[in-house]
Design a protein around this nucleic acid. Structure first.
Lengths: 224, 224
DNA sequence: GTCATCATGTAAGCCGTTACATGATTGC
DNA sequence: GCAATCATGTAACGGCTTACATGATGAC
Protein backbone atom coordinates (compact mmCIF):
# COMPACT_ATOMS: atom_id res chain seq x y z
CA UNK A 1 0.00 0.00 0.00
CA UNK A 2 2.94 2.25 0.62
CA UNK A 3 4.03 1.60 -2.94
CA UNK A 4 0.72 2.93 -4.13
CA UNK A 5 1.10 6.08 -2.06
CA UNK A 6 4.60 6.68 -3.36
CA UNK A 7 3.62 6.17 -6.97
CA UNK A 8 0.65 8.43 -6.46
CA UNK A 9 2.81 11.26 -5.21
CA UNK A 10 5.44 10.75 -7.89
CA UNK A 11 2.60 10.69 -10.42
CA UNK A 12 2.19 14.38 -9.73
CA UNK A 13 5.73 15.48 -9.31
CA UNK A 14 9.21 14.05 -9.14
CA UNK A 15 10.62 14.08 -5.69
CA UNK A 16 13.15 12.67 -3.30
CA UNK A 17 12.44 10.39 -0.36
CA UNK A 18 12.61 12.89 2.43
CA UNK A 19 10.14 15.13 0.67
CA UNK A 20 7.81 12.25 -0.12
CA UNK A 21 7.63 11.54 3.55
CA UNK A 22 6.70 15.13 4.30
CA UNK A 23 3.92 15.13 1.73
CA UNK A 24 2.63 11.81 2.98
CA UNK A 25 2.26 13.42 6.38
CA UNK A 26 1.06 16.90 5.44
CA UNK A 27 -1.08 16.24 2.41
CA UNK A 28 -2.28 12.67 2.53
CA UNK A 29 -2.56 12.44 6.29
CA UNK A 30 -2.42 8.67 5.96
CA UNK A 31 0.86 7.11 6.94
CA UNK A 32 1.00 9.86 9.52
CA UNK A 33 4.67 9.36 10.12
CA UNK A 34 5.93 6.71 7.81
CA UNK A 35 9.39 5.65 8.87
CA UNK A 36 12.43 5.86 6.66
CA UNK A 37 12.99 2.23 7.40
CA UNK A 38 9.90 1.59 5.29
CA UNK A 39 10.18 4.38 2.80
CA UNK A 40 13.67 3.92 1.45
CA UNK A 41 13.47 0.18 0.95
CA UNK A 42 10.15 0.77 -0.81
CA UNK A 43 11.79 3.26 -3.17
CA UNK A 44 14.59 0.79 -3.85
CA UNK A 45 12.08 -1.93 -4.59
CA UNK A 46 10.19 0.30 -6.98
CA UNK A 47 13.42 1.26 -8.68
CA UNK A 48 14.42 -2.39 -9.05
CA UNK A 49 11.01 -3.04 -10.59
CA UNK A 50 11.59 -0.20 -13.05
CA UNK A 51 8.54 1.62 -11.77
CA UNK A 52 10.63 4.66 -10.93
CA UNK A 53 14.01 5.97 -11.97
CA UNK A 54 16.51 8.15 -10.25
CA UNK A 55 16.81 11.24 -12.36
CA UNK A 56 19.22 13.07 -10.13
CA UNK A 57 21.30 11.89 -7.28
CA UNK A 58 23.36 14.90 -6.47
CA UNK A 59 23.43 18.57 -7.15
CA UNK A 60 22.17 19.11 -10.69
CA UNK A 61 19.05 21.00 -11.61
CA UNK A 62 15.86 19.01 -11.29
CA UNK A 63 14.63 19.79 -14.76
CA UNK A 64 13.46 16.61 -16.49
CA UNK A 65 15.74 15.01 -19.07
CA UNK A 66 18.17 17.87 -18.75
CA UNK A 67 21.73 16.71 -18.95
CA UNK A 68 24.14 18.26 -16.57
CA UNK A 69 27.84 18.28 -15.97
CA UNK A 70 29.33 15.25 -14.38
CA UNK A 71 31.79 17.32 -12.46
CA UNK A 72 31.24 17.01 -8.78
CA UNK A 73 33.05 20.17 -7.90
CA UNK A 74 31.15 21.94 -10.61
CA UNK A 75 27.92 20.77 -9.08
CA UNK A 76 28.99 22.01 -5.73
CA UNK A 77 29.80 25.40 -7.10
CA UNK A 78 26.43 25.48 -8.81
CA UNK A 79 24.69 24.71 -5.57
CA UNK A 80 26.53 27.33 -3.66
CA UNK A 81 25.48 29.82 -6.22
CA UNK A 82 21.89 28.59 -6.12
CA UNK A 83 21.77 28.72 -2.37
CA UNK A 84 22.12 32.47 -2.51
CA UNK A 85 18.85 32.60 -4.39
CA UNK A 86 16.94 30.23 -2.12
CA UNK A 87 17.21 30.96 1.57
CA UNK A 88 16.62 27.34 2.65
CA UNK A 89 16.69 23.92 1.17
CA UNK A 90 18.32 22.88 -2.09
CA UNK A 91 20.40 20.22 -0.46
CA UNK A 92 22.79 17.99 -2.20
CA UNK A 93 23.27 14.24 -1.95
CA UNK A 94 19.67 13.42 -2.49
CA UNK A 95 18.06 11.12 -4.99
CA UNK A 96 15.19 12.52 -6.96
CA UNK A 97 12.81 9.89 -8.29
CA UNK A 98 10.56 10.02 -11.30
CA UNK A 99 7.78 7.62 -12.12
CA UNK A 100 8.16 5.66 -15.37
CA UNK A 101 5.51 4.54 -17.82
CA UNK A 102 5.71 1.14 -16.26
CA UNK A 103 5.29 2.76 -12.88
CA UNK A 104 2.17 4.49 -14.11
CA UNK A 105 0.81 1.17 -15.23
CA UNK A 106 1.65 -0.34 -11.86
CA UNK A 107 -0.05 2.60 -10.17
CA UNK A 108 -3.30 2.04 -12.00
CA UNK A 109 -3.06 -1.67 -11.42
CA UNK A 110 -2.56 -1.25 -7.68
CA UNK A 111 -5.30 1.31 -7.59
CA UNK A 112 -8.08 -1.04 -8.55
CA UNK A 113 -6.64 -4.50 -8.13
CA UNK A 114 -5.06 -4.28 -4.74
CA UNK A 115 -7.49 -4.10 -1.83
CA UNK A 116 -5.89 -7.13 -0.32
CA UNK A 117 -7.55 -8.80 2.62
CA UNK A 118 -6.05 -8.02 5.97
CA UNK A 119 -5.38 -4.46 4.93
CA UNK A 120 -6.89 -1.58 6.80
CA UNK A 121 -9.99 -0.91 4.74
CA UNK A 122 -10.45 2.70 5.74
CA UNK A 123 -6.85 3.59 5.08
CA UNK A 124 -6.83 1.74 1.81
CA UNK A 125 -9.94 3.51 0.63
CA UNK A 126 -8.71 6.89 1.81
CA UNK A 127 -5.52 6.44 -0.11
CA UNK A 128 -7.37 5.54 -3.27
CA UNK A 129 -9.75 8.42 -2.96
CA UNK A 130 -6.86 10.80 -2.50
CA UNK A 131 -5.66 9.75 -5.96
CA UNK A 132 -9.13 9.52 -7.46
CA UNK A 133 -8.51 12.43 -9.79
CA UNK A 134 -5.98 10.31 -11.66
CA UNK A 135 -8.35 7.54 -12.58
CA UNK A 136 -11.13 7.14 -15.09
CA UNK A 137 -14.58 8.37 -14.00
CA UNK A 138 -16.16 4.95 -14.03
CA UNK A 139 -13.33 3.50 -12.00
CA UNK A 140 -13.84 6.30 -9.52
CA UNK A 141 -17.50 5.48 -9.28
CA UNK A 142 -16.69 1.82 -8.85
CA UNK A 143 -14.30 2.66 -6.03
CA UNK A 144 -16.98 4.61 -4.21
CA UNK A 145 -19.55 1.91 -4.66
CA UNK A 146 -17.22 -0.84 -3.52
CA UNK A 147 -16.57 1.13 -0.38
CA UNK A 148 -20.27 1.68 0.11
CA UNK A 149 -20.96 -2.03 -0.15
CA UNK A 150 -18.21 -2.69 2.36
CA UNK A 151 -19.75 -0.30 4.85
CA UNK A 152 -23.20 -1.73 4.29
CA UNK A 153 -21.88 -5.15 5.19
CA UNK A 154 -20.31 -3.72 8.30
CA UNK A 155 -23.58 -2.14 9.23
CA UNK A 156 -25.27 -5.51 8.97
CA UNK A 157 -22.81 -7.30 11.22
CA UNK A 158 -22.89 -4.42 13.71
CA UNK A 159 -26.64 -4.71 13.91
CA UNK A 160 -26.39 -8.42 14.55
CA UNK A 161 -23.93 -7.71 17.32
CA UNK A 162 -26.15 -5.03 18.82
CA UNK A 163 -29.15 -7.33 18.81
CA UNK A 164 -27.39 -9.82 21.05
CA UNK A 165 -28.17 -9.53 24.73
CA UNK A 166 -24.76 -10.42 26.10
CA UNK A 167 -23.10 -7.05 25.62
CA UNK A 168 -22.17 -4.93 28.60
CA UNK A 169 -22.80 -1.20 28.76
CA UNK A 170 -19.49 -0.11 27.30
CA UNK A 171 -19.38 -2.59 24.49
CA UNK A 172 -22.94 -1.74 23.61
CA UNK A 173 -22.15 1.95 23.50
CA UNK A 174 -19.19 1.13 21.29
CA UNK A 175 -21.30 -0.85 18.86
CA UNK A 176 -23.99 1.80 18.75
CA UNK A 177 -21.47 4.51 18.09
CA UNK A 178 -19.81 2.43 15.43
CA UNK A 179 -23.16 1.97 13.75
CA UNK A 180 -23.81 5.69 13.74
CA UNK A 181 -20.37 6.42 12.38
CA UNK A 182 -20.84 3.89 9.60
CA UNK A 183 -24.19 5.38 8.69
CA UNK A 184 -22.56 8.78 8.58
CA UNK A 185 -19.86 7.40 6.30
CA UNK A 186 -22.44 5.91 3.98
CA UNK A 187 -24.34 9.17 3.77
CA UNK A 188 -21.13 10.95 2.86
CA UNK A 189 -20.36 8.35 0.20
CA UNK A 190 -23.83 8.74 -1.22
CA UNK A 191 -23.21 12.44 -1.64
CA UNK A 192 -19.93 11.74 -3.41
CA UNK A 193 -21.54 9.13 -5.61
CA UNK A 194 -24.32 11.45 -6.62
CA UNK A 195 -21.89 14.19 -7.43
CA UNK A 196 -19.95 11.75 -9.61
CA UNK A 197 -23.11 10.70 -11.41
CA UNK A 198 -23.89 14.30 -12.18
CA UNK A 199 -20.46 14.77 -13.68
CA UNK A 200 -20.81 11.83 -16.03
CA UNK A 201 -24.52 11.29 -16.57
CA UNK A 202 -24.52 8.24 -18.84
CA UNK A 203 -22.15 5.34 -18.16
CA UNK A 204 -22.50 4.19 -21.81
CA UNK A 205 -21.26 0.59 -21.76
CA UNK A 206 -17.88 0.80 -23.54
CA UNK A 207 -15.79 2.97 -25.86
CA UNK A 208 -15.77 5.70 -23.32
CA UNK A 209 -13.04 8.20 -24.04
CA UNK A 210 -10.60 7.53 -21.27
CA UNK A 211 -10.07 10.90 -19.69
CA UNK A 212 -7.67 12.98 -21.71
CA UNK A 213 -4.59 13.00 -19.63
CA UNK A 214 -3.98 16.69 -19.35
CA UNK A 215 -4.43 18.48 -16.06
CA UNK A 216 -1.97 16.08 -14.55
CA UNK A 217 1.18 17.81 -15.65
CA UNK A 218 3.53 19.15 -13.08
CA UNK A 219 2.49 22.69 -12.49
CA UNK A 220 5.69 23.67 -10.89
CA UNK A 221 9.18 22.70 -11.85
CA UNK A 222 11.86 22.80 -9.22
CA UNK A 223 10.29 25.43 -7.09
CA UNK A 224 11.02 24.77 -3.43
CA UNK B 1 -2.78 -6.22 21.65
CA UNK B 2 -4.11 -9.66 20.86
CA UNK B 3 -2.81 -10.80 24.23
CA UNK B 4 -4.93 -8.17 25.89
CA UNK B 5 -8.02 -9.33 24.02
CA UNK B 6 -7.42 -12.94 24.94
CA UNK B 7 -6.84 -12.16 28.60
CA UNK B 8 -9.94 -10.00 28.61
CA UNK B 9 -12.09 -12.82 27.32
CA UNK B 10 -10.56 -15.39 29.66
CA UNK B 11 -11.08 -12.91 32.46
CA UNK B 12 -14.76 -13.60 32.14
CA UNK B 13 -14.80 -17.28 31.38
CA UNK B 14 -12.41 -20.11 30.71
CA UNK B 15 -12.36 -21.16 27.11
CA UNK B 16 -10.49 -22.90 24.35
CA UNK B 17 -8.86 -21.26 21.37
CA UNK B 18 -11.45 -21.96 18.75
CA UNK B 19 -14.15 -20.48 20.95
CA UNK B 20 -12.05 -17.45 21.80
CA UNK B 21 -11.82 -16.73 18.12
CA UNK B 22 -15.58 -16.90 17.74
CA UNK B 23 -16.15 -14.49 20.62
CA UNK B 24 -13.51 -12.12 19.26
CA UNK B 25 -15.50 -12.00 16.06
CA UNK B 26 -19.07 -12.03 17.37
CA UNK B 27 -18.77 -10.02 20.57
CA UNK B 28 -15.78 -7.77 20.33
CA UNK B 29 -16.03 -7.11 16.63
CA UNK B 30 -12.39 -6.12 16.65
CA UNK B 31 -10.00 -8.63 15.19
CA UNK B 32 -12.83 -9.41 12.79
CA UNK B 33 -11.31 -12.69 11.77
CA UNK B 34 -8.19 -13.25 13.70
CA UNK B 35 -6.25 -16.11 12.18
CA UNK B 36 -5.30 -19.24 14.05
CA UNK B 37 -1.77 -18.58 13.01
CA UNK B 38 -1.88 -15.63 15.39
CA UNK B 39 -4.18 -16.98 18.03
CA UNK B 40 -2.55 -20.28 18.95
CA UNK B 41 0.99 -18.93 19.21
CA UNK B 42 -0.41 -16.14 21.37
CA UNK B 43 -2.01 -18.66 23.71
CA UNK B 44 1.23 -20.61 23.88
CA UNK B 45 3.12 -17.45 24.72
CA UNK B 46 0.69 -16.56 27.45
CA UNK B 47 0.92 -20.05 28.85
CA UNK B 48 4.72 -19.92 28.83
CA UNK B 49 4.47 -16.61 30.69
CA UNK B 50 2.20 -18.25 33.29
CA UNK B 51 -0.56 -15.81 32.49
CA UNK B 52 -2.91 -18.66 31.62
CA UNK B 53 -3.02 -22.38 32.38
CA UNK B 54 -4.52 -25.29 30.54
CA UNK B 55 -7.19 -26.71 32.80
CA UNK B 56 -8.40 -29.42 30.47
CA UNK B 57 -7.00 -30.96 27.34
CA UNK B 58 -9.13 -33.94 26.62
CA UNK B 59 -6.83 -35.75 24.28
CA UNK B 60 -4.34 -36.93 26.86
CA UNK B 61 -1.42 -35.27 28.64
CA UNK B 62 -0.48 -31.59 28.90
CA UNK B 63 -2.49 -30.73 32.00
CA UNK B 64 0.00 -28.90 34.19
CA UNK B 65 0.64 -30.63 37.48
CA UNK B 66 -2.83 -32.05 37.53
CA UNK B 67 -2.86 -35.79 37.27
CA UNK B 68 -5.83 -37.54 35.80
CA UNK B 69 -6.57 -40.90 34.22
CA UNK B 70 -4.20 -41.72 31.45
CA UNK B 71 -6.78 -43.93 29.87
CA UNK B 72 -7.70 -42.70 26.43
CA UNK B 73 -10.80 -44.86 26.19
CA UNK B 74 -11.88 -43.57 29.56
CA UNK B 75 -11.69 -39.99 28.39
CA UNK B 76 -13.62 -40.84 25.30
CA UNK B 77 -16.36 -42.53 27.25
CA UNK B 78 -16.68 -39.52 29.50
CA UNK B 79 -17.02 -37.24 26.54
CA UNK B 80 -19.55 -39.41 24.83
CA UNK B 81 -21.63 -39.24 27.95
CA UNK B 82 -21.32 -35.48 28.04
CA UNK B 83 -22.30 -35.14 24.43
CA UNK B 84 -25.69 -36.63 25.11
CA UNK B 85 -26.47 -33.66 27.32
CA UNK B 86 -25.46 -31.00 24.80
CA UNK B 87 -26.91 -31.29 21.30
CA UNK B 88 -23.88 -29.83 19.53
CA UNK B 89 -20.30 -29.13 20.31
CA UNK B 90 -18.44 -30.49 23.31
CA UNK B 91 -15.63 -31.76 21.20
CA UNK B 92 -12.67 -33.58 22.45
CA UNK B 93 -8.99 -32.84 21.90
CA UNK B 94 -9.26 -29.24 22.84
CA UNK B 95 -7.36 -27.21 25.37
CA UNK B 96 -9.36 -25.12 27.76
CA UNK B 97 -7.48 -22.15 29.14
CA UNK B 98 -7.98 -20.32 32.41
CA UNK B 99 -6.45 -17.01 33.37
CA UNK B 100 -4.14 -17.00 36.39
CA UNK B 101 -3.62 -14.36 39.04
CA UNK B 102 -0.50 -13.35 37.21
CA UNK B 103 -2.52 -13.17 34.04
CA UNK B 104 -4.97 -10.87 35.73
CA UNK B 105 -2.12 -8.64 36.75
CA UNK B 106 -0.78 -8.68 33.21
CA UNK B 107 -4.24 -7.84 31.92
CA UNK B 108 -4.48 -4.72 34.07
CA UNK B 109 -0.97 -3.77 33.20
CA UNK B 110 -1.60 -4.06 29.45
CA UNK B 111 -4.86 -2.23 29.84
CA UNK B 112 -3.38 1.04 30.92
CA UNK B 113 0.29 0.78 30.08
CA UNK B 114 0.22 -0.49 26.53
CA UNK B 115 -0.95 2.02 23.94
CA UNK B 116 2.24 1.51 22.05
CA UNK B 117 3.09 3.78 19.12
CA UNK B 118 2.41 2.34 15.71
CA UNK B 119 -0.70 0.62 16.95
CA UNK B 120 -4.09 1.32 15.51
CA UNK B 121 -5.43 3.90 17.95
CA UNK B 122 -9.10 3.30 17.31
CA UNK B 123 -8.82 -0.45 17.63
CA UNK B 124 -6.70 -0.16 20.72
CA UNK B 125 -9.18 2.17 22.38
CA UNK B 126 -12.16 0.05 21.34
CA UNK B 127 -10.57 -3.00 22.85
CA UNK B 128 -9.93 -1.22 26.11
CA UNK B 129 -13.41 0.19 26.29
CA UNK B 130 -14.84 -3.26 25.71
CA UNK B 131 -13.12 -4.36 28.91
CA UNK B 132 -13.78 -1.13 30.76
CA UNK B 133 -16.09 -2.77 33.23
CA UNK B 134 -13.13 -4.68 34.64
CA UNK B 135 -11.11 -1.66 35.61
CA UNK B 136 -11.29 0.92 38.36
CA UNK B 137 -13.62 3.88 37.76
CA UNK B 138 -10.85 6.43 37.70
CA UNK B 139 -8.83 4.35 35.26
CA UNK B 140 -11.91 4.19 33.08
CA UNK B 141 -12.25 7.93 33.17
CA UNK B 142 -8.57 8.33 32.37
CA UNK B 143 -8.97 6.03 29.38
CA UNK B 144 -11.80 8.11 28.01
CA UNK B 145 -9.96 11.33 28.54
CA UNK B 146 -6.78 10.06 26.95
CA UNK B 147 -8.79 9.10 23.92
CA UNK B 148 -10.47 12.46 23.88
CA UNK B 149 -7.12 14.24 23.92
CA UNK B 150 -5.95 12.03 21.08
CA UNK B 151 -8.93 12.95 18.96
CA UNK B 152 -8.55 16.62 19.77
CA UNK B 153 -5.01 16.46 18.49
CA UNK B 154 -6.22 14.79 15.32
CA UNK B 155 -8.79 17.49 14.87
CA UNK B 156 -6.06 20.10 15.04
CA UNK B 157 -3.87 18.46 12.40
CA UNK B 158 -6.89 17.88 10.18
CA UNK B 159 -7.74 21.53 10.37
CA UNK B 160 -4.22 22.47 9.40
CA UNK B 161 -4.47 20.12 6.44
CA UNK B 162 -7.82 21.54 5.41
CA UNK B 163 -6.53 25.09 5.56
CA UNK B 164 -3.89 24.37 2.94
CA UNK B 165 -4.79 25.30 -0.61
CA UNK B 166 -3.10 22.45 -2.42
CA UNK B 167 -5.74 19.80 -1.83
CA UNK B 168 -7.78 18.50 -4.72
CA UNK B 169 -11.53 17.95 -4.52
CA UNK B 170 -11.43 14.37 -3.33
CA UNK B 171 -8.75 14.81 -0.73
CA UNK B 172 -10.51 17.86 0.57
CA UNK B 173 -13.76 15.98 0.88
CA UNK B 174 -11.89 13.23 2.70
CA UNK B 175 -10.37 15.65 5.18
CA UNK B 176 -13.66 17.39 5.78
CA UNK B 177 -15.42 14.12 6.37
CA UNK B 178 -12.66 12.97 8.66
CA UNK B 179 -13.03 16.18 10.65
CA UNK B 180 -16.75 15.64 11.01
CA UNK B 181 -16.27 12.05 12.07
CA UNK B 182 -13.72 13.06 14.67
CA UNK B 183 -16.05 15.71 16.06
CA UNK B 184 -18.76 13.11 16.24
CA UNK B 185 -16.43 10.80 18.13
CA UNK B 186 -15.53 13.52 20.58
CA UNK B 187 -19.17 14.33 21.25
CA UNK B 188 -19.80 10.65 21.94
CA UNK B 189 -16.84 10.49 24.29
CA UNK B 190 -18.09 13.55 26.11
CA UNK B 191 -21.36 11.81 26.74
CA UNK B 192 -19.54 8.77 28.09
CA UNK B 193 -17.30 10.93 30.25
CA UNK B 194 -20.22 12.80 31.70
CA UNK B 195 -22.02 9.59 32.47
CA UNK B 196 -18.89 8.32 34.24
CA UNK B 197 -18.66 11.48 36.28
CA UNK B 198 -22.23 11.08 37.39
CA UNK B 199 -21.51 7.54 38.51
CA UNK B 200 -18.59 8.58 40.69
CA UNK B 201 -19.19 12.20 41.61
CA UNK B 202 -16.21 13.01 43.78
CA UNK B 203 -12.81 11.63 42.73
CA UNK B 204 -11.08 13.73 45.44
CA UNK B 205 -8.04 11.51 46.00
CA UNK B 206 -5.93 14.49 46.93
CA UNK B 207 -5.54 17.55 44.79
CA UNK B 208 -8.29 16.85 42.35
CA UNK B 209 -10.36 19.68 40.93
CA UNK B 210 -13.21 18.06 39.03
CA UNK B 211 -12.90 20.56 36.20
CA UNK B 212 -16.48 21.15 35.22
CA UNK B 213 -17.54 23.59 32.59
CA UNK B 214 -17.40 21.19 29.70
CA UNK B 215 -20.99 20.53 28.78
CA UNK B 216 -19.98 20.08 25.17
CA UNK B 217 -22.67 19.58 22.58
CA UNK B 218 -24.49 16.46 23.85
CA UNK B 219 -27.13 16.89 21.20
CA UNK B 220 -28.90 13.64 21.71
CA UNK B 221 -29.80 11.64 24.77
CA UNK B 222 -27.55 8.84 25.83
CA UNK B 223 -30.08 6.11 25.12
CA UNK B 224 -31.53 5.70 21.65
C1' DG C 1 -16.24 -44.87 4.91
C1' DT C 2 -16.29 -40.44 3.71
C1' DC C 3 -17.19 -35.62 4.24
C1' DA C 4 -17.99 -31.31 6.93
C1' DT C 5 -16.84 -29.26 11.00
C1' DC C 6 -14.28 -28.60 15.13
C1' DA C 7 -9.72 -28.08 16.87
C1' DT C 8 -4.71 -27.26 17.14
C1' DG C 9 -0.63 -26.23 15.40
C1' DT C 10 3.88 -24.80 12.16
C1' DA C 11 6.24 -22.15 8.38
C1' DA C 12 6.85 -18.54 5.39
C1' DG C 13 5.94 -14.05 4.25
C1' DC C 14 4.20 -9.09 4.28
C1' DC C 15 4.29 -4.73 5.89
C1' DG C 16 5.23 -1.94 9.02
C1' DT C 17 8.12 -0.41 13.21
C1' DT C 18 12.44 1.31 16.14
C1' DA C 19 17.30 1.60 16.62
C1' DC C 20 21.43 2.30 14.66
C1' DA C 21 24.97 4.17 11.26
C1' DT C 22 26.54 7.54 8.04
C1' DG C 23 27.25 11.67 5.64
C1' DA C 24 26.23 16.57 3.51
C1' DT C 25 24.76 21.43 4.28
C1' DT C 26 24.11 25.29 6.72
C1' DG C 27 23.59 28.50 10.68
C1' DC C 28 25.98 30.45 14.32
C1' DG D 1 34.37 24.11 14.36
C1' DC D 2 30.14 22.46 16.07
C1' DA D 3 25.40 21.47 16.36
C1' DA D 4 20.97 21.16 13.94
C1' DT D 5 18.78 19.71 10.08
C1' DC D 6 18.44 17.36 5.76
C1' DA D 7 19.08 13.02 3.59
C1' DT D 8 19.83 8.06 2.87
C1' DG D 9 20.32 3.77 4.25
C1' DT D 10 20.73 -1.16 7.13
C1' DA D 11 19.37 -4.53 10.84
C1' DA D 12 16.46 -6.53 13.95
C1' DC D 13 12.17 -7.20 15.26
C1' DG D 14 6.71 -7.24 15.86
C1' DG D 15 2.32 -8.59 14.79
C1' DC D 16 -0.40 -10.06 11.72
C1' DT D 17 -1.52 -12.81 7.39
C1' DT D 18 -2.01 -17.10 4.29
C1' DA D 19 -0.84 -21.76 3.28
C1' DC D 20 0.06 -26.02 4.84
C1' DA D 21 -0.25 -30.22 8.02
C1' DT D 22 -2.68 -33.00 11.27
C1' DG D 23 -6.18 -35.17 13.68
C1' DA D 24 -10.81 -36.04 16.22
C1' DT D 25 -15.99 -36.12 15.97
C1' DG D 26 -20.35 -36.59 14.16
C1' DA D 27 -23.70 -36.92 10.31
C1' DC D 28 -25.03 -39.48 6.55
Amino acid sequence: MLDLAILGLLHEQEQHGYEIRRRLRDELGLFANISFGSLYPALSRLEAAHAVTVIESSGGAAAPSMPFTGSLSGERAGLRARRAGTPRGTKRSRKVYRITDQGRRLFEQLLDADERPGADDARSFGLRLAFARHIAPQARLALLERRRAQLTRRLATDQVRASGDTLDVYTRSLVEHSTEATEHDIAWLDRLIESERLKQPAPRSENREPHTGDAVTATKGTSP
